[in-house]
Every structure is written in C-alpha cells, then in structure tokens.
Design a protein around this nucleic acid. Structure first.
Lengths: 244, 244
DNA sequence: GAGCGCTGTAACATTATCGTCACAAGTTGT
DNA sequence: ACAACTTGTGACGATAATGTTACAGCGCTC
C-alpha cells in the first residue's frame, strides 16, 4: 500500500544533491564510497558504528542510508530494525551492503526493512544505479506541497497548520491524520483504511485509537467549526467535508 | 446471481465469517487459535498434519490457511509448496506460524509462497491483525461508483444520498438497502432475497424487519414522492421503479 | 534522570440505530 | 360484508457504535 507520508526531509529534486549517510567501519571502503558519492553530486556523511549512525540519522534525517551488514557492536540488521521502529526515522530509505552474495543475507536484509541491498564487491556504477533507483522510488510519494481546504492550511514542508490564518499546533500523528484527510477530502474512510494510510500497513493498532486521534484533531481545530468539517459517518468511518 | 452484498457490507470491513483452516499439531495452540478465531467471528476448521490439511483444503477451500512451520511428516513449507503448485488451491491465502524468531524460517516461509508469517509466541492481537490484512488484501473491491436513479443520487465513496439535489441522512442499513435497490431497479425482491443481499446470507432476522426498514427508507425519501418509487408488490416483495 | 509531550489503550458515558412487537390499516377471496 | 391474510406504523428495550476521559509507557530534551 502506498504510504504518502515519507516524512523525512524530502524535496522534489532528490536525485541530485541528496545527503547520504554511509555506515561502514572499514575506512577504505568508507572513503571509496564517500568519494564516489561526492562525484555523483551527493553529500556524504559517515558513521563508523551503529550508535553513531542512529545519532546522525536522528540528527539530520539523511535522504538515504547505506549500511554495512557487518558492523562492530550492533549489527547492520539490528540498526535497520531500530531505524524502522522509530517514528521519526521509519521512512528513511535504506540500502544494505552485504559482504557475501549469500542468499540469506540478502533476504534477511530486505526482510528487516531495507529497501535494497548490494553485495560486495560491487561496482561504482551499480551503487549509483541503485541509489538513484531507491531515491526515485521514494520521491514521487512525498507530497511536500502545501494543502488547502476551506479555511485550513497545512504545509508539510514547514510542518505548520493554520485555521483561518491563525496557526495551531498538532502532534505528529494528528498532523499526518489531517494531512491525509485534506488530501482526500469529501470521501469516507473506515478506521482500517485510516490506519493503513496514516499509520502504515503493518501496524497492529486498535481501531478505536483512530477515534481518539480524531477527537484530538477535532479539539485542536475547535476554534473553527471543526465538527462540521471532520464528521463521523456512523457505520462507515470519518470524512473531511466542506458541505454541511 | 451476482451478489454485491455477499457477507461483507459495502463499506465496513470484509473479514467476518471467513472459514479458516488451522494446521497445527499441538492441541493446546490449536485450541487457543480456534477459540480466538471463533470470537473474532470466523469459522475455524482444524487439521493435525499436512495430509489432513491437504484433504481439507481441497475439500472445502477455506478463505485462509494458518500453517505451523513444524509439522509431523511433511513440513509446513512442503505443505505450502504443495498447495501452491495445485491449480485448485493455488490462490488460497496462507499465513505461516514459526516457532523461533529465526530469520531463516521466516524467509523460507515467505519465499515458498506464504502470504505472511507470524513468529511464536505471538499476541492474539497480532494474529488478528495479520489475518485481517491478508483477508482484506484478497477481498474483492466493492463498486464505489455513484448510482443515480430518477432524482435520487447515492455515492458510496462520500456516503451521501440526495433527493432532488437536497441531501438526506440515512442509517447504515437504510443506506445499504437503498443502494441495493438502486443497483437493481425495476425488479421485485422478496423479503428473503432482500435479507440475503443487504443483511448478508446467514442472518437470522424476522422477515417483517424488512418492512420496517422499507418504511424508514420511505419516510426518509418522503420529501420526494417516494411512495411512487419504492413500491410494494403484494405477496411478492418490494421494488424500486420509475414507472407509475 | 527528571520533566515533558505524545501515543495507544482501557474504561466509562452517550447516542444512534436496530430488531421486534402489538396493533392499525389495507387487501383479497368468498 | 366478513374473515383471513398481508402490509403499514409507531413505540420500545437492547445493542452496537461513537464520544470522552484518564492513565501508563516511551522517547526525547535539558
């Protein structure tokens, strides 16, 4: 299922000048990759171990992370898992680097949440191709354009929401929820659909949780006549509408 | 006859009343799962080994098969393979249960053709969520196209109904009832048929209940000369018609 | 490590809707 | 016209769906 919310810092021209974090303990390979990335027009940031990587990802939300399978301390796969389970870093694209062309490694890397993998030794050309592919795959899904609906304005870029001109503050989930509704107005969505779109497909969350967030969103929109905008359709779900 | 409203209701979720085969040799887990499935509204059928499972799948084509990784005789993976290579059983959704969170197990299970996997111990909630996800993935999409009839308009997407342009509000059942009639106009349906189509097949409801809902629907459509549209055919049933 | 904001869930409160009944009203056949 | 039957109608608990509140956990900041 499509996930509209690739939250991370994503601009429309991600293919060039992307910031890429390289997590690799061998200095030689590290430098080789960094050099190559630089030539390709990207900005390379490096981390020597998983801890440092976590820090940097949280810090600067790179457009892509290259992770070596073998790392001192926390393994590459564990690192992927950590990144995937954190709300903020969940959607950062990841490419794994595996030393052996071993089937299991590849699959385990993918399974754990990586977007792609490359087996060493790899050619520079192959690396570039895959980076481009991953970035491109992610790019079209990010809707960073400001959205308007009635007297609501939501700007994913600046992460701001305003009602009738005056700005309000929303938590991350309420923000995504509102963004989803504003990009899909006038249409009824079941709790399950909302969970799939806003939270993500593979999440095990009580459907009633949606209700609570709807309420929170409503009360945040309170100043406006939000009850009119975000209405509940009994037996079906919720809907954002301009009509009465 | 086509039946739009088979089991699922048009807009809410689809995963009730599914028949699920549980292939598990440990009686305790077997029962636990069966009990849970029953509570979730599904019909649980069980098989203790792969042979029995094959038989039952071929026999009754369940909506979903839960297969334990470790089975006496033929392994779970082999069972999956057998099911996948058989024309008749090729498309039955499968969820694997793996005892250890071992990477290889998971991957081999998916690789061999399962739709999803769960590692034991798993929470009831997770099981339910995955079952729902798999069933939903397979569920046929109900047509969400707006329907028009005379001066009536019904839009499943926005869940709105309007008579001569002005919107009216209907409860879920009346909504489905009207949708059914609008998609099957000019034809008489008995109370039993209406129950089957709108409520679902195996419901135990008084036929006279249909009358009451017809009345409610009529009075909701009142503003228009609905008495003409939704007419009674004595001794036979009801019909939505444009003719006088 | 204490404080803080956010989240998911449970528990309770509140409605909306449902299914059924009893009876009224209408229809049919004789 | 009368009985036998079918359908309309309004009311009424029961129930399921939603609103609302409170709370405990978690990660993050300082």
């Amino acid at each position: 299922m499509e996930n509209i919310y690739r939250t991370p810092s994503a601009h429309s021209e991600v293919h060039l000048g992307a910031s890429i974090l390289v997590v690799e303990d061998e200095a030689a390979i590290q430098e080789l990759i960094a050099l190559n990335l630089g030539q390709a027009g990207h900005e390379a940031v490096s981390a020597m171990d998983a801890q440092e990587a976590l820090q940097r990802v949280r810090d600067s939300l790179p457009d892509l992370v290259l992770i070596d399978w073998m790392l001192p301390g926390m393994s590459g796969i564990d690192l992927v898992r950590r990144l995937r389970t954190n709300e903020r870093t969940r959607n950062v694209p990841i490419i794994m680097l595996t030393a052996r062309a071993d089937e299991i490694d590849k699959l385990a890397g993918l399974e754990s949440g990586a977007d792609d993998y490359i087996t060493k030794p790899f050619s520079i050309r192959e690396l570039n191709a895959r980076i481009k592919a991953v970035l491109r795959r992610r790019a079209p899904q990010m809707t960073e354009d400001p959205v308007n609906f009635k007297d609501l304005t939501l700007d994913p870029g600046t992460h701001r929401v305003s009602v009738k001109g005056s700005e309000i503050s929303l938590g991350p989930t309420e923000f995504k929820l509102l963004h989803f509704f504003m990009t899909h107005p006038e249409r009824v969505y079941s709790r399950t659909q909302i969970l799939d779109h806003v939270w993500g497909d593979h999440v095990f969350i009580e459907e009633r949780t949606v209700d609570v967030h709807i309420r929170r969103l409503r009360s945040a929109l309170e100043p406006s006549h939000s009850d009119q905008l975000l209405q509940t359709v009994r037996g079906a779900g919720y809907r954002l509408t301009a009509l009465p």
